[in-house]
Nucleic acid binder design. Structure first.
Lengths: 363, 363
DNA sequence: TTGTAAGCGTTATCAG
DNA sequence: CTGATAACGCTTACAA
């Protein structure tokens, strides 16, 4: 904003018309007819001068900034934020809007500060995103601004939200293992009591039950969601003779630890042990050997959906806030090389389960 | 921006003064004295009404938007973007500014579109960032806007830039290995001919030479910078009897591959083989076992420095653009468990090199 | 110490 | 079909 830019006034002068006319032609005002000749004159002038309308002035006048705010809890530590933001950005840009990004670091103090800064700038709406699926408390300042929650829910607030379909994810994971023929399964779940932990376990169990698995053929243990946690849990799980032949890990990092445990135990993946992860953190899922089959989290899609939703809300105006839409998005399973049929020694002649994956992608 | 917010006019009415006075007290205009009583009256009114100044109007008037744009090439695939943005955001917020984030996906088309969108919004300046250190071509539209390059250089443009100090990184890596007592070193470099590849090799060699290493005690090979590349290179490197006892890897992902090669060869890390990586991608450097000692890339710092720089440029005005400052930032070495003295079998009684790490952090 | 009024760059209403 | 002109919400000479 340092050097003065070309204004509509200069274009008008150059074209020898009034600024009104310039505005008319440049905005293609419906119902306003302008002579073809003057139209080209104006367009030429604008082009020649390199005129770019000043959004600030436009927004001031139209009460619409075509700008949205993205407030995330931690943008730097996980690779997730980028995908969500990209999804948001893509749909925003399609509407000539752009997005302010701020990161709170989980500090209420700075969150308030940042939201204030966004509001001051008259953002049309706000995307409030968590980096992991959880219930959140809505900052009070957002009560009167179009808002949608990403990876977060806030009961009673009437604010739309979108989260991953955890149950479906658990089902898909079980499905992958069952389809490969496994009949002795384990799930290393997150110790933390969060929606993802509940949902994935529910889905995993449900799908296993549907396949007729006995209770004692499905073990569920909990661990810290890092490689060390996975390692410890796997050592325990794999110590017994009737060890599981397929393990579903709460996330990919944790899965790294079970890879290590398996290696130490002389268990080959996938011949002796099949593993499925969660998150599809490319850097680990692709980096590990053999590649990790895993369930992807729909970050981009959540960002995109939320933004569509936000614009709908903005366009609907402050009037009726109809039943706030909410959505669970299912992520795809990414097949790599960590799943194979169980070796004969452990699961002789088991029949394969038919795949369930043909169900439609979105819950 | 949907519902009409409180304006300065309403505050004035509520306080029973003119809008001028409100402006004066709220902005603490220097040299303007206002009666203590009216000051509190105004402040009360503002608080009561929940007044928040409209930045758009302010900007229009003051020709300063307190807004900067961040254009990155890919924001979603690497975990780096988040850190750079966070650095930028932190210093921006300290100046009551906020940042628009856009990602180009390496497509000129969308880059132009996005930059236009930013300019239209009168950003005060632009941060142009690459996710890996490289020379770039400056989009022409940025020629007349305060700009600073992050992780990128553009010779002849006169635009300030900040990049990692690759040479120092290479030196530090060598230093870690030499200090541990290693005398047979290898560097698995990136096949791509990029500044990081040149710089790190230069630094690594220089430091090794300084330690008196012979040429044949330092092998340099190239590979794709992924686990597979590292694996292949390591297999080759470790096949010989006079294998290196310490390997420096161009990056952490590649290092994952050498971990695997070592495991297959029955070489223990760090007892039989020491490894140092680059990037400090926590998820792999911490996830791998034993933890990977690595050189961190100063993403946050680059983002922060660039933003300081940008504000300086903005405040200096469009007048003199003095010798554009440029900076190489050295990243810290993150010590974990992948480096130890070479085992006796291979390097009997070698003396330890004194550490070089005490040198100041910034080049 | 406080207020009037101009103007930042647009859009929109209403006359010509 | 085209053009004055009044907002939009704010800062800032300049007056009172």
């Amino acid at each position: 904003m340092t050097q003065r830019r070309v204004t509509i006034k200069q274009v008008a002068a150059e074209a020898g018309v009034s600024i009104t006319t310039v505005s008319h032609v440049l905005n293609d005002v419906p119902g306003k007819r302008v002579h073809p000749d003057t139209r080209v004159r104006v367009e030429d002038a604008a082009r020649r001068l390199g005129y770019v309308p000043n959004s600030l002035a436009q927004s001031l006048r139209t009460q619409r900034s075509n700008t949205i705010g993205f407030v995330g809890d931690e943008i730097a530590t996980t690779p997730f934020a980028g995908k969500i933001i990209l999804g948001a950005q893509d749909v925003a840009l399609a509407r000539d809007a752009v997005v302010f990004v701020v990161s709170t670091g989980y500090q209420r103090e700075v969150e308030n500060r940042e939201i204030e800064e966004l509001l001051r700038r008259q953002v049309d709406g706000i995307l409030y995103a968590s980096m992991y699926h959880r219930p959140v408390e809505l900052p009070p300042q957002l009560a009167s601004v179009p808002t949608v929650l990403i990876n977060a829910t806030c009961t009673g607030s009437g604010v739309p939200w979108v989260v991953p379909d955890e149950v479906a994810g658990g089902e898909d994971a079980a499905d992958v293992l069952l389809t490969a023929g496994h009949r002795r399964l384990a799930f290393i779940n997150d110790v933390d009591e969060i929606p993802a932990a509940f949902g994935r376990e529910e889905g995993f169990r449900r799908r296993a039950a549907r396949a007729g698995l006995h209770d004692d053929d499905l073990r569920v243990v909990t661990a810290e969601t890092d490689p060390a946690g996975g390692y410890a849990a796997a050592r325990q799980l794999l110590a017994h003779a009737d060890r599981p032949t397929g393990i579903f890990c709460f996330n990919d990092r944790l899965a790294m630890g079970v890879y290590r445990a398996a290696a130490e135990l002389g268990l080959r993946i996938p011949e002796d042990l099949s593993i499925v992860g969660f998150d599809n953190q490319e850097i680990v899922a692709e980096g590990v050997h053999p590649g990790l089959t895993t369930i992807e989290l729909p970050h981009y899609e959540m960002g995109a959906w939320a933004t569509e939703q936000l614009f709908d809300q903005i366009e609907a105006g402050p009037g009726a806030r109809p039943a706030a839409p909410a959505r669970k998005l299912r992520g795809p399973v990414i097949h790599r090389a960590s799943v194979a049929p169980p070796s004969r020694g452990h699961d002789p002649g088991e029949r394969r389960e038919p795949s369930d994956l043909a169900r439609q992608r979105q819950a």
